[in-house]
């Protein structure tokens, strides 16, 4: 159901956000009305020259009433606020981690465009095609300033930062075209860093993928890069240099030389390539050279896509 003034809603999260919005709007609206009504009533009733009853209860009685009133208007807001906090936080927490098996799409933001690439290789600029009813996970990074990926119809927004990956996920509920905005100010053409998200029925989405599959998949591009950058020289089978094996690495816990254990997620893989001295795998010498500044963000995402597939 679309609420007045809210834009059309087209994601599973959006419907839940709108219900919360309506509840908060109703309660705050009621409080605002009550206070304004009291202000107006008091202002009129007790205006100078009116013959309203201004006799006071005795001091002791009045102070007791004052205290009770104050306890009431501390206690009641506290209850309402707790409820609003809990509802909103639960929804936020619930949506924090993307579900397993979500369709992954890589996003690279730059002044002033959105570059998107599907795992199957299709590339788009300022336009994103997604299927309805299937969870979609965007792995995003920026090549320059901070940007923010905002789809009002999905009620979702996530800043896109240089030097790290942030994740946004959603499940579209209705086919259609929706605004995509950059919501974090990023310089001259910030207001032109816009585009659209096109949600298609799954069958149509497959047809769209098939019609646009001129490019190799991300993992294939990553595999080519893996060779071109000479990664196999150390990480490949039968290499003379002792380097950690990459097979089945993604998603696994990795024991580090400093005693910590981290999960081999996108962030870990990125840092391992760009800042190899940061997290050295236990039992290995820190001999890997840094590739910082040598691999464009898009290529890095291809490489990671390849590493995820290596088994």
């Amino acid at each position: 159901m679309k609420l007045p003034f809210l834009p059309e809603v087209a994601s599973t999260l959006g419907e839940r956000v709108d219900a919360l919005f309506a509840a908060v709007a109703l309660v705050t609206g009621a409080v605002a009305l009550a206070v304004v009504a009291l202000l107006v009533i008091f202002a009129l009733k007790y205006r100078r020259g009116s013959r309203a009853d201004r006799r006071r209860a005795p001091e002791a009685v009045r102070l007791r009433i004052e205290r009770r009133l104050e306890v009431a208007w501390i206690g009641i807001p506290m209850l309402l606020f707790s409820a609003a906090f809990a509802w909103a936080a639960a929804l936020y927490f619930d949506h924090a981690a993307p579900p397993d098996g979500a369709l992954e799409i890589a996003v690279v933001a730059k002044q002033w465009m959105w570059k998107l690439q599907h795992a199957t290789g299709q590339r788009e600029i300022d336009e994103l095609h997604v299927p309805v009813g299937i969870p979609v996970k965007l792995v995003m990074t920026s090549q320059d300033a901070i940007h923010s990926f905002y789809i009002p119809a999905f009620r979702l927004k996530q800043d896109v930062l240089p030097g790290r990956y942030t994740v946004l996920w959603f499940t579209a509920t209705h086919a259609g075209e929706y605004h995509l905005f950059c919501a974090e100010y990023c310089g001259t053409d910030h207001s032109r860093m816009i585009g659209r998200v096109v949600a298609l029925d799954p069958a149509q989405f497959q047809r769209w993928l098939a019609a646009n599959n001129a490019e190799p998949t991300m993992a294939a591009r990553g595999e080519a890069l893996f060779g071109a950058l000479g990664c196999g020289g150390c990480h490949g089978p039968g290499s003379a240099v002792r380097a950690p094996p990459l097979e089945g690495l993604y998603g696994r816990p990795v024991a580090l030389a400093d005693g910590r254990t981290v999960t081999a997620d996108e962030r870990y893989l990125r840092d391992a390539i760009l800042l190899p001295a940061k997290e050295v795998v236990a039992g290995y010498a820190p001999v890997m050279p840094s590739f910082s500044g040598q691999i464009p963000e898009g290529d890095l995402l291809d490489l990671i896509a390849y590493l995820k597939r290596v088994t």
């Binding site: 999260l13 839940r16 919360l20 409080v31 606020f81 909103a88 919501a183």
Partner: peptide, 25 residues
């Protein structure tokens, strides 16, 4: 009093996490 209250109540929307995600910026 009226405008401050109105501004304050709208602040509750922004304090509420899931609503802020849509409304911030």
């Amino acid at each position: 009093v009226g405008l401050f209250m109105f501004g304050g109540l709208s602040g509750l929307f922004l304090a509420a996490l899931a609503l802020d995600v849509h409304l911030t910026d």
